[in-house]
């Protein structure tokens, strides 16, 4: 059986807390049939299925950007979602950061980003191969926005286990089309695992040739 593709709509709430974030999160979930991942600076006042915080707090998943965030006191990390620039070699600094996080926390999932000039497709393909083999128990994903759809499509074909992330609502059609070429169904999901299958794209039939009657002008029935 082929593996499905997952669409995980994600809402990023900015660091400065605003009271309207609660209703915003509610609206976001309502717009995605109760599914969707939320990354927030602090716990929300409403019940959400899948949440990660940008500050470490006990009992919550810590969403950490390994390239940007200052790592706090190491024993407070707990479970983490790591966003890191794709390491392409043993010397890579992002690999060192990923290793540090791996040692001091329970890494739940890794999201790789691409730094276009530094990451040709060849390097990415090899790096992903290594990463997927080194962390078989961690869910690895790529950020489609920085990878670009062409690279993401190829990598999704090459590595069926790869998660595609950072796909917003108006790019869903690209994911649906990818599912169509690869023959994989697309499911709407978040990290609480209650996926829902998305209906396939509509297909339009190409009509039969227009009958030609040379005794009438214009002779194509399409323009009468």
């Amino acid at each position: 059986m082929t593996k499905p593709l997952y669409w995980i709509p994600t809402l990023f709430l900015p660091n400065h807390w605003q009271p309207f974030y609660d209703p915003l999160a509610k609206m976001f979930l309502a717009a995605h049939q109760g599914r969707g991942h939320i990354v927030s600076p602090q716990p929300l006042g409403v019940q959400v299925p899948s949440l990660a915080l940008t500050q470490p707090q006990s009992g919550y998943v810590y969403h950490v950007n390994a390239d940007r965030d200052q790592l706090p006191n190491r024993d407070r990390l707990g479970v983490t979602d790591v966003v890191v620039s794709c390491p392409t070699g043993i010397e890579d600094t992002s690999l060192a950061r990923l290793n540090a996080l791996y040692r001091y926390s329970t890494v739940r999932r890794i999201t790789l980003t691409r730094d276009a000039p530094r990451h040709p497709l060849l390097a990415l393909s090899r790096a992903l191969d290594t990463i997927l083999q080194s962390f078989p128990h961690i869910s690895v994903g790529i950020d489609v926005e920085t990878f670009g759809w062409d690279a993401a499509a190829h990598l999704a074909q090459q590595f069926p286990d790869l998660r595609l992330e950072g796909i917003d609502d108006n790019q869903l059609w690209q994911l649906m089309q990818l599912g169509q070429v690869l023959g994989r169904t697309v499911w709407l999901d978040d990290f609480s695992h209650h996926p829902k299958a998305l209906p396939p794209l509509p297909q339009f039939k190409i009509s039969d040739p227009p009958p030609i009657d040379v005794h009438r002008i214009p002779f194509s029935s399409r323009f009468r």
Binding site: W149, D150, H154, Q177, V181, F204, I206
Partner: peptide, 13 residues
């Protein structure tokens, strides 16, 4: 002409 769609990059390859 919505029925005439472009080919996906993987199909193109």
């Amino acid at each position: 002409q919505p029925e005439l769609e472009p080919m996906h990059i993987l199909a193109l390859c």
